[in-house]
Amino acid sequence: MSRRLGLHHVTKTYGTKPALSGATAHWEEGAIVALVGANGGGKSTLLKMLSGVIQPDAGSIEGLDEFTMASMPDRLAFSRGWTAADWLAMVAAWKKAPRSRVREVLAEAGLDDARNKSVAAFSQGMVRRLLYAQTRLTPADLILLDEPEGGLDPEWTVRLEGELDRLRAEGKTVIFSTHWLDFAVEKADKLCIFAGGKIVAQEEAAVWRILDSSTRRQNLVEWIQVEP
């Protein structure tokens, strides 16, 4: 039987400010879901909840335990002492991944030559590739990516698109947030539109594919502006 990930009225409040309220959605195993919308709309909050960083104040997330999860955060600053190889070796130890995987994922991310350099000196794109590389240390069937395209150059952007195709072919469930609407429309099955801490619309990405880029953006802005 196919697994399912369900959000039931999931709510999270920081102080008095609601970061996410009443989020409800269901995604089948193997779905590629793009979270799009306004800044502060609740996308990262939802990804943090799915990855276990924070807990909902109300509501529930169903089916999460049935998946093995790998998560790429949107932001991680590295102290001066971290090298890419050391940091991945530490994460590999936590995830019980064989040490040989560290070199393999570094090579996949194009960071093999930089493995012993300080991550603090990496470009934003290199850090994104390193953060993605750690999701590849062990097999996972639920992949959470928070703005994976941020800071990537054109070559690695194309590679990221290829990665999503590969994950789809392998039947992985992928939930990613992005501000790059065309990327979301082209690569996802479902679009989940966030505004003001709420899911304001859930759409089939295929429907948006027939629209040109400009119309897609206009539609998204309209959805964000009708925030309830």
């Binding site: 943090k48 276990g52 955060p73 991680l76």
Partner: peptide, 17 residues
């Protein structure tokens, strides 16, 4: 405080640490 500011603490949680 560095783990907190840099986001490393959140990353530990996502790795089930």
């Amino acid at each position: 405080s560095g783990d907190r500011e840099d986001g490393m603490g959140d990353f530990y949680r996502s790795c089930r640490i």
